[in-house]
Nucleic acid binder design. Structure first.
Lengths: 160, 160
DNA sequence: CCTTGTGATTCGGAACCCGAACTATTTTAT
DNA sequence: ATAAAATAGTTCGGGTTCCGAATCACAAGG
């Protein structure tokens, strides 16, 4: 049966509902920059380095055809471009254009700002604990780096 | 600049990447039941009670037209139905059919099982702490109940 | 040199998203 | 009591996203 109101939330429910919250903040941030969430995610992934399509598809967990079209649409806007792979004439590498790089940085910063507001009700120590635990879940499950980690996006967890 | 490998992950990055992880598990669970993630989410929300379209749209954070079509598709499959609102002839109420209720329960249980595996590398105490902190973030941000909370989905946080 | 495997694209089909406009009904103002 | 305004929900046009199968070009292996 459903829990009584005062009863604490399970970790499963907390993860699902937190995900819903983060998705909404991410989508709002993307919208502010005239991006769709998928385009925003593509730009964020490419901030680290150019990627081949196969690897990019693995990182984003998309079917090959889905990725081809996402890259098509994003390239159409001048934000990314396909470059020939010098080592393999079948392959292309996807990289940010100058315009795409600038938009990616701005979108990334705004997304960091918005997401950083979500745990505002926690103390610094609680934030650090949350980051440590959630970070371990992320690492344990080999989540690809769909969002880079820098000092600029919220204070880092103090070293142990 | 990017952090050194050993440096802890920020709470912002942890939230975004954890969200990616949860989304993937959710989508896999939906697929196993022949549902799309959106249909699964609709079913989960309706497990609690029937909803009017306006309230349902608010909970799911969808435009009115998006919800109309989502309900159309899900009703087409016999999983939900629209009922007239006895108090307001403009309004309809969306409720689960018997078939939809059964599928919702199965999908919900499987999703709980999958999500419950994600923090498997944490101790029971760490899970409780994660649930408490993430739960507070969820409550602080007024996240709608897009996923119900019962004793069955992972152990609850011990009472304080 | 031929066969197999890989990288990426194309295609058909479906789901999903939203804003504007519309219809029916309820609520509010006169 | 009637008209105007607001609300509930649907329709429509346009766009994004998803995927499996099929295809072509190229690389690797036999």
């Amino acid at each position: 049966m459903a829990k009584a109101p005062g009863e604490p939330m399970s970790v499963v429910t907390a993860l699902v509902r937190a995900s819903f919250l983060v998705n909404a903040a991410y989508a709002e941030s993307a919208k502010e920059y005239g991006l769709t969430p998928q385009q925003g995610q593509l730009l964020c992934v490419l901030m680290a380095q150019p990627y081949g399509m196969s690897e990019l598809g693995a990182v984003l967990r998309l079917a090959k055809s889905s990725l081809t079209e996402l890259v098509d649409r994003t390239a159409q806007r001048g934000l990314v471009r396909r470059e020939p792979d010098p080592c393999d004439r079948r392959a292309v590498r996807v990289t940010l254009t100058e315009q795409g790089g600038e938009l990616a940085e701005a979108f990334y910063a705004e997304t960091c700002r918005r997401i950083d507001l979500l745990p505002a009700g926690l103390s610094a120590e609680e934030r650090a604990t949350l980051a440590a635990l959630l970070g371990r879940v992320v690492l344990d499950n080999n989540v690809p780096v769909v969002f880079k980690d820098t000092e600029e996006n919220g204070e880092a967890v103090p070293a142990r």
